[in-house]
C-alpha cells in the first residue's frame, strides 16, 4: 500500500490503480452508487457516487467510482453540496425508474420522495437508467450482445441494430447485475426469452429442472474447458448426490 489519502479526515492507504470508491468501501465509508460493479471498468454514468475531492490545492466534485486514488488526495464523502447534487441526480433517475425500489429508497435517503420531472415516456426499456452495467458485463463475459444505441436523450440499450443478437447465449447475467432489475426475462419450464430471443434449456437428467440454455452450455464448455457432461445434471442435484455419497462414506 503505497498511496496515502484521507477520506473524511481519516488517513487511509491504497494501492496504485485503485479507485476512490473501492478504497472508501473497503475502509467502511458509505458512498451510494448505482452503476458501479467491481467486475467491470467504471464509467461514471449515474453520478450518484459524487464526492468532494481536494488535490493540488484545487477542490472540486468528482465521481469516486472512476477517480484513481492519489497520494495526498483529500476526499469528503458528505457535504451539503455533494448531498444536493446527489439528490438532484437521484431525482432525475427517479423519473426514469419510478418502478425501481432501489432507486426510490436511495432517493428517499436524500429527501427525494417525489420527482418534479414527468416520467420518461418514450424509454424503450421501462425503469432503465442507462448505466450500461448489463452491456459492460455482457462484454466482459465475451458475448458483446448488447450495445448503447443513439446518443443524448435518445440513448437506449439493446442488442445492436435493434435485432436479436446472434451472440447472446441467454445467460441473463445482464439481468443479475441490473440495478433496477429492468432487463426482461421470461422463463418457462423448458425455455427462456430475453432481448427478443428464445432459448431452449438443457434439462437436468436427474430431476428435469432447467440447468442453463444450450447456447450458454456450449459457450461455457468451450471457454472453461469443462467435461462434456458437466451440465447434464443441475446444481442442486449435484449437491444432493455429493451429500449422499459423503453420507455413505461417513456411515
Amino acid at each position: 500500500m503505497s498511496i496515502r489519502l484521507t477520506i473524511d479526515d481519516v488517513e487511509v492507504k491504497a494501492e496504485p490503480g485503485e479507485y476512490v470508491l473501492a478504497v472508501a468501501r473497503r475502509e467502511g465509508f458509505a458512498i451510494p452508487s448505482l452503476c458501479h460493479h467491481e467486475s467491470v471498468a467504471p464509467i461514471g454514468a449515474c453520478r450518484v457516487c459524487l464526492v468532494q475531492v481536494t488535490f493540488g490545492g484545487k477542490t472540486t466534485l468528482s465521481t469516486s467510482c472512476n477517480m484513481l486514488a492519489e497520494e495526498g488526495l483529500q476526499v469528503v464523502t458528505d457535504t451539503p453540496e455533494v448531498r444536493a447534487h446527489r439528490a438532484m441526480n437521484l431525482e432525475l433517475l427517479l423519473a426514469r425508474a419510478p418502478g425501481s425500489a432501489r432507486v426510490r429508497e436511495m432517493a428517499r435517503q436524500y429527501g427525494v420522495t417525489r420527482t418534479r420531472f414527468p416520467q420518461v415516456a418514450e424509454s424503450a426499456l421501462a425503469n432503465c437508467i442507462l448505466c450500461e452495467l448489463c452491456m459492460r458485463v455482457c462484454s466482459r463475459l465475451g458475448h458483446d450482445a448488447l450495445s448503447a444505441i443513439g446518443r443524448g436523450d435518445k440513448k437506449r440499450i439493446g442488442p445492436p441494430f435493434g435485432t436479436p443478437s446472434e451472440r447472446c447465449v441467454g445467460c441473463a447475467s445482464c439481468r443479475s447485475v441490473c440495478p433496477t432489475a429492468c432487463v426482461f426475462v421470461r422463463d418457462t419450464a423448458t425455455s427462456r426469452t430475453i432481448w427478443g430471443k428464445t432459448f431452449e434449456f438443457v434439462l437436468c437428467k436427474n430431476c428435469g429442472a432447467p440447468v442453463l440454455t444450450r447456447e450458454h452450455r456450449q459457450h461455457a464448455l468451450a471457454h472453461a474447458g469443462l467435461p462434456e457432461d458437466y451440465y447434464d445434471v443441475c446444481e442442486p442435484c449435484k449437491q444432493a448426490d455429493a451429500a449422499g455419497r459423503f453420507a455413505n462414506v461417513v456411515w
Binding site: 454514468a45 447534487h85 441526480n89 432525475l92 448503447a148 443513439g150 446518443r151 443524448g152 435518445k154
Partner: peptide
C-alpha cells in the same frame, strides 16, 4: 441534449429536462 453522449445522468437527463 441531442449531442450529449448520454453517459452521465446529469448531462443527458439534466439537459433534456
Amino acid at each position: 441534449k441531442s449531442e450529449s453522449c448520454g453517459n452521465c445522468t446529469s448531462c443527458r437527463d439534466g439537459l433534456m429536462r
